[in-house]
């Protein structure tokens, strides 16, 4: 325990006395200048579902192409428990070699090209055993526009790597990213130790950072409305604007710290001439079974 010199102790006592003399009411009739008030807070959003599963797809569509008729570059199945604030993200490597209904075996990301969001939802559902309620698809430009609408994001990177879009590079820890830098953060795989798997982890960090940003600014007048409008303009969705508004408001109930991520593992190899990932189906099913009901991972990845 630190012992203060007596002069300093007297000085502190004097300061305390002076403070008390200033803040205390001199008589009983005077209103106090300070108050300690109990504040009740509460937040709730009515949504028809307690647990929502959203398949988030990043399409590799180039300008002029339809985002839902190309291949999916990023595949994240996100479960959100709107009551408990917990959530689970399941990253699926885009080269996962799986059965695609009506098309035999192929990379899972081809499902979007063959049959749009419905078939993509079907393929992911077969792999992990969880059927998404919604499929949101966006392209490169749409993603950048949405990140721009919320003023950029701050990601917590596990890896340091360099890229021309960010002169200072991406460092381990916090990185404040503009929309283009955010897109690259979710796309690069070569500088990452485990390529596609680590990229999938980076995409989850991007989703977490977007949620963090939205929660920080949700009380700012017009912020949620601007964000939903940007999402509508840049995403393919069959939800009505009112449904999307309600869903967006409900999603803010999820706490970024309770949003856990797993990437479905597997081994790399070849199917013919194509480089593919043979996914660990047992792991995918186990994660799906664990999180299906409450969107919470009790047993980890």
């Amino acid at each position: 325990m630190t012992r203060w010199p007596s002069a300093r102790r007297l000085l502190v006592l004097g300061a305390l006395l002076a403070l008390v003399a200033v803040v205390l009411p001199p008589s009983a009739v005077r209103q106090s200048d300070i108050a300690l008030v109990r504040v009740r807070t509460g937040q709730a959003v009515d949504h028809p579902k307690t647990v929502v599963w959203v398949l988030c797809l990043g399409s590799d569509a180039r300008p002029g192409e339809t985002v839902t008729a190309t291949r999916a570059d990023a595949i994240q199945l996100v479960g959100l428990n709107l009551q408990t604030g917990a959530g689970t993200m399941m990253g699926i490597p885009r080269d996962s070699y799986v059965d695609i209904a009506g098309h035999g075996r192929d990379k899972i990301n081809a499902s979007l090209y063959y049959g749009g969001p419905q078939l993509m939802a079907d393929s992911v559902g077969r792999l992990v055993g969880v059927r998404p309620d919604y499929v949101f698809t966006t392209g490169f430009l749409g993603f950048r526009a949405m990140v721009g609408a919320i003023g950029g994001v701050t990601v917590d990177s596990r890896f340091a790597f360099s890229d021309a879009v960010r002169p200072q590079g991406y460092r381990v820890g916090k990185n404040k990213l503009n929309p283009f830098q955010a897109l690259i953060f979710g796309r690069v795989r070569h500088p990452l130790p485990n390529g596609d798997f680590d990229r999938s982890g980076n995409q989850q960090e991007l989703l977490r950072s977007i949620l963090r940003n939205v929660r920080t600014h949700q009380s700012q007048p017009g912020f949620m409305e601007r964000g939903v409008l940007a999402a509508m303009k840049n995403m393919d969705t069959d939800l009505s604007p009112a449904q999307l508004f309600r869903l967006a408001q409900a999603v803010t109930a999820v706490e970024p710290g309770k949003l856990k991520g797993c990437v479905v593992g597997g081994s790399t190899g070849y199917a013919g001439a194509a480089s593919v990932v043979f996914p660990d189906v047992a792991q995918a099913r186990r994660i799906g079974d664990d999180a299906r009901r409450d969107a919470k991972l009790d047993r980890g990845c």
């Binding site: 008030v37 109990r38 504040v39 009740r40 807070t41 937040q43 709730a44 408001q249």
Partner: peptide, 9 residues
């Protein structure tokens, strides 16, 4: 359909 409120007395 939702609220985010604080209250003091």
């Amino acid at each position: 359909f939702g609220y985010d409120l604080n209250r003091s007395a």
